[in-house]
Design a protein around this nucleic acid. Structure first.
Lengths: 204, 204
DNA sequence: CTAACTATGTTACTGTTGTTAACATATGTT
DNA sequence: AACATATGTTAACAACAGTAACATAGTTAG
């Protein structure tokens, strides 16, 4: 339960408008998609006037970027947590990271899409990239350990990239309902497992 | 040059408003993204009033769906054409399909994104899916030939799906500028070739 | 050829949205 | 107490999606 409690605090103007707006935005985005999301809706949900958010965010996009950042952060935590349930640096732990990735996409498709789109985040792309890089590090770390590499070097990166590509594609195809195009049921877990085994280079 | 010529025809009201609107929408989307696209802009570009489009499209989304359909169609043609430049049913021809896919994404990122998003196309998803299935058939056909299967059966589908996933992921990571997250240059052609070889089951 | 019909366009209007400006008040600081 | 700063409000604006009432070009039936 990561729901920030609705505190009115009632003394200071609103208590924590900034936080509540990010929260409201997140919920609304999952409900209507980033396009169907309106600043006004978020204001109504937070119970403030439509001008209030502009004390905390310079624009609608600025708010969306915040939601995206939060998502990338949580994705990284998910992956790390799921990997930790297996012996580190194994095919299993690496596949678990992939599952966490796809699961996140399915659980919060709109936020996921938002996290991986440049256009909405003009001006703050670097900031966002930093958070993303950090989460990506979870996979790199795991692959490094699998390969017995002492650090995250080029070999590790070149081995990890196809894995990322694969789960990224699987995520998008899933949330866009393209799995049914193939006329037979695609088992996501199987797909990840098979692809991980095939794409990972053999252990030296 | 697939540009539909700007015909005023001057007799019949506008000549071909519907076509020109799809065309204008396509151009504007590539310029500003699907979100930055406004019906009014398209009208200005076509030189008609803002109410005119509603004689041809029931809504903005309806127009966008049309642009998406057109994109899926062209993608299929691209893939087929590129595959035809190699011996059919080979790793080379299959990889060529992948390159056509990623190239399209890079060439028309916004349209590509539009093509693969459910949300904007409520009500006409099946219609869109049909066109997509058709284009996907190009890959299935090629893989069937590679495997020596007489028809597109489950084996063919299960072999093709990971390939699709891979190029789909690579496409999105490319257009979202995520390739640089890895600190070293990713060669798209290499990536496709390597992944294709690894993911395709050995020829029986 | 004309009358009726349909397709396609226009102008005028509505309600919603993102954003800014001018103003008001709470909180923190001296 | 006096001031500065942070945070909120109301009022307004322009842009936009979509609708209604109207106008006219093309097509078809008689």
């Amino acid at each position: 339960m990561a729901k920030t409690k609705i505190q009115k605090k009632s003394g200071y103007h609103h208590g924590n408008l900034r936080g509540q707006l990010v929260n409201a935005a997140g919920r609304l985005i999952e409900k209507n998609g980033p396009d169907g999301f309106s600043m006004s809706d978020a204001c109504r949900l937070a119970g403030v006037s439509t001008a209030a958010p502009y004390r905390h965010f310079s624009s609608k996009q600025d708010l969306l970027t915040e939601v995206a950042k939060d998502g990338l952060q949580r994705l990284g935590e998910d992956m790390d947590h799921r990997a930790s349930q297996y012996p580190r640096g194994t095919v299993d732990s690496i596949a678990a990271i992939g599952r966490a990735y796809v699961d996140f996409a399915i659980r919060e498709p709109h936020t996921f899409r938002l996290m991986f789109s440049t256009k909405e985040h003009t001006g703050r792309i670097e900031e966002l990239k930093a958070v993303g890089r950090n989460s990506y590090g979870v996979l790199l770390q795991e692959v490094a350990q699998y390969l017995g590499e002492p650090e995250i070097n080029e070999t590790v990166m070149r081995s990890s990239f196809p894995l990322w590509t694969q789960v990224h594609g699987l995520s998008f195809l899933s949330i866009d309902g393209k799995l049914e195009v193939t006329d037979f049921p695609v088992d996501i877990n199987d797909s990840i497992m098979i692809a991980t085994e095939r794409l990972l280079p053999a252990k030296s």
